[in-house]
Computed example of a mutant assay.
Amino acid sequence: MINKAIKSYITEHEEELIATRRKLHSEPELSWEEENTTAFICEQLEELGIPYRRTEPTGVIAEIKGGKPGKTVALRGDMDALSVQEINQDLAYKSKFDGKMHACGHDAHTSMLLFAAKALHQVKDDIPGSVRLLFQPAEEVAEGAKTIIKQGAMDGVDNVFGIHIWSQTPTQKIVCNPGPAFAAADIFKVEFKGRGGHGAIPQDTIDAAVVASSFVMNVQTVVSRTVDPLDTAVLTIGKMEVGTRFNVIAENAVIEGTVRTFDKETRNHVEKELEHYANTVASLYGATAKVTYSRGTNAVINEEISTHLVQQVASEAFGEDVIYDQKPTMGGEDFSFFLDEAPGSFALVGCGNPEKDTEWAHHHGRFNIDEDALITGAELYAQYAWSYLNK
């Protein structure tokens, strides 16, 4: 099942792969601002002669058409950076731009997918079918996948595969289990309105600070007392704004947070109960509540057959001990929207190495990767596409 020419190409071009990742790391671009990254990818594809088209406003869809008829498999790599200040002072390739950083590994994803494309291009005459290459913008704001899907990214695709580099997993280990991998990630806002007044005359007021505080202290019962303990849900309050002055009783309070779930029933239940709880707390104090619940990414649910293929490919390419068992994460990933269009799977490729100080959490200013993971990810992309189309 494993194509030796693909393995040889990626191994022989490891230094170039690392250099490409370092270039992208030093030149981060935020969501919907990936103009230079998009142009760089286009230049690379043009040199290879791989047909592509730019998506709007950023991003690239390319396709390697094999020499034989067959299905179409899509490979996705995201490109955008984060509004994070890099504090890796000793890196020669650290971010050139204050307040912008590839703190989640998307520079690695883009580089790995690009070199997977180069390897697949070398064997295109033997490929039965086509490989769709999706260089996706704006994953960090959960908008890029839906945008490029609307522009035809998944038209005619039979299967889709994605990779995320992962600092909490040992370098070169691969995690890909059937079922939930990433959670649905939703955002909510609760706006409480009371009646403001002088801090010395509380009897004439309805204190929004008290209402909001009661909500924050007790809203976890939505999960702990209304969700089946065997189901999974996380409700987090991340922001609260209330009050204007030390001696003024607040009239308004705004609370923002996130809900993470794996299945639709639990997601619907928490949304309903959250609104009910906010209105109940508000009425208890004579205030009012307005709840805005925004659904973000869906849960990433790995399809069983595709996942077993990933495990088989990984074992044959790198050895059976490469497979690593790890629990699903409650983080969100807009790869979920590709899985709404076609079956597929999403794998984690470990890049955590304490000797190289690459175990920092994603989105941290000291995040970095063990670059030994790059050839693993690049080959996994390419070998999965080859194996899927040849199975």
Rank of each mutant, 00 (worst) to 15 (best):
188 F>K: 02
150 K>P: 04
231 D>C: 14
29 E>L: 02
320 E>A: 13
254 V>D: 10
208 A>G: 00
132 R>I: 03
106 H>I: 06
125 D>T: 04
83 S>R: 13
65 K>Q: 12
151 Q>P: 08
158 D>Y: 08
87 I>C: 06
151 Q>W: 08
291 V>G: 09
236 T>W: 06
34 E>D: 10
61 I>H: 12
366 R>Y: 09
335 F>I: 08
145 A>L: 00
306 S>Q: 11
317 A>H: 04
372 D>S: 07
327 K>D: 15
103 A>Q: 02
272 K>F: 07
36 N>M: 14
310 V>W: 09
240 M>V: 15
302 N>A: 11
144 G>C: 05
9 Y>F: 15
53 R>W: 11
109 H>L: 14
356 K>D: 07
355 E>Y: 09
40 F>S: 04
150 K>R: 06
206 I>M: 01
168 Q>H: 10
148 I>S: 14
319 G>K: 07
309 L>T: 14
32 W>H: 11
274 L>R: 02
113 L>W: 10
312 Q>M: 05
260 R>F: 02
118 K>I: 14
327 K>V: 06
242 V>E: 03
224 S>T: 12
60 V>L: 10
333 E>N: 03
12 E>I: 03
371 E>P: 09
8 S>I: 03
161 F>C: 11
43 E>H: 13
8 S>M: 02
171 T>K: 03
59 G>P: 11
282 A>I: 05
184 A>S: 14
256 E>M: 11
79 M>A: 15
16 E>N: 13
202 P>S: 05
251 E>L: 04
283 S>T: 09
36 N>W: 11
378 A>I: 03
159 N>H: 15
186 D>K: 12
96 K>A: 12
218 N>Q: 13
346 F>L: 12
160 V>S: 08
332 G>L: 09
148 I>Y: 05
331 G>Y: 06
138 A>W: 02
230 L>G: 00
175 V>G: 00
82 L>I: 04
352 G>A: 00
127 I>L: 15
78 D>G: 11
146 K>G: 04
111 S>D: 10
54 R>I: 06
19 A>F: 12
55 T>Y: 04
87 I>G: 06
20 T>W: 15
22 R>K: 14
320 E>P: 04
371 E>S: 11
188 F>S: 03
127 I>S: 07
314 A>D: 03
138 A>H: 02
385 A>Y: 15
46 E>D: 13
119 A>L: 01
303 E>G: 15
334 D>T: 07
70 G>Q: 14
266 T>R: 00
183 A>D: 00
302 N>H: 09
115 F>S: 07
131 V>D: 06
47 E>F: 06
275 E>Q: 13
154 M>V: 08
243 G>M: 08
143 E>L: 11
280 T>Y: 10
181 A>C: 12
384 Y>G: 05
346 F>M: 13
35 E>D: 11
221 T>M: 09
110 T>K: 06
